[in-house]
Design a protein around this nucleic acid. Sequence first.
DNA 1: ATGGCCTTCGCCCGAAAGTATGATTCTTCT
DNA 2: AGAAGAATCATACTTTCGGGCGAAGGCCAT
Lengths: 143, 143
Amino acid sequence: MRKTILFYGLSLAALVFLMKVLEYRFFVRDFSLEFYVGVVAVLFTALGVWVGLRLTRKKTAFVVMPSGRFVLNEAALKETGISPREHDVLDAMANGLSNQEIADKLFVSLNTVKTHTSNLFVKLDVKRRTQAIQKGKSMGLIP
Amino acid sequence: MRKTILFYGLSLAALVFLMKVLEYRFFVRDFSLEFYVGVVAVLFTALGVWVGLRLTRKKTAFVVMPSGRFVLNEAALKETGISPREHDVLDAMANGLSNQEIADKLFVSLNTVKTHTSNLFVKLDVKRRTQAIQKGKSMGLIP
DNA sequence: ATGGCCTTCGCCCGAAAGTATGATTCTTCT
DNA sequence: AGAAGAATCATACTTTCGGGCGAAGGCCAT
């Protein structure tokens, strides 16, 4: 990551240098300012397109377990401080259940489920249940 | 498509106009050429990034990840009748994005995303986004 | 026994998600 | 040319989530 930033920086520097060259090569020779600016504009537009393309390359590594059974990562459980009940909720959540359905399944009230989910989000450092599921899976908390 | 081209043209025209304004507002008032050019450069770089993002949002383009060789199940795609755009939304959804974030990422309005998600739920026969993610994964629609 | 947890539950409120319906534009296929 | 399917957006409405309080009982360690 640092390398790419450095690379962008160097590219910018190179372009600035090119600008200076153009400035003394063309501008002083009575080329119009519009022309000069136009060149700069085109150049930087191209740079922008290129950077835009670079930036949107996806990288999201995904760790899947095609083999046998799912093993719970208990170390991660302790690190995050997720309680057994919260873990139940996370599991139900990952199965696509709504809070109300989770409440019915666990025989508790809707409010209780909400409390659990809220605490869960804090402990997982996420904002939405979809993210919680994602993170839970990647951490080996749920299958 | 014609409209987008027209839009780009207008954007460029607007920027050129802005350039002229800057030219008479700042340049003649003894601001340095470097400053002026810098503003132009930043402006057009931003434009370039934006254009780059817009241009690359076509194509389903799922980058295969190093450690799991995900292959899109195109048969399932046809069976469910999920459109390319809906597929984009599903992917973003699985990455834990909110509808608003998806809208920003795909350069469309929130309402459009909602429409896509609704159609998606019907086609996947689910009721919630969490279920859509589950089903999407199990059907090989998303990594 | 006191402080710290987990679990349970309540209320309020705003934000996000989802449903329904209709409209426009554009491409593609017949 | 016309039908059909996309993609886009809008408006209006309901439901679900999520945050921010607070609180009570149980359990377990220092």
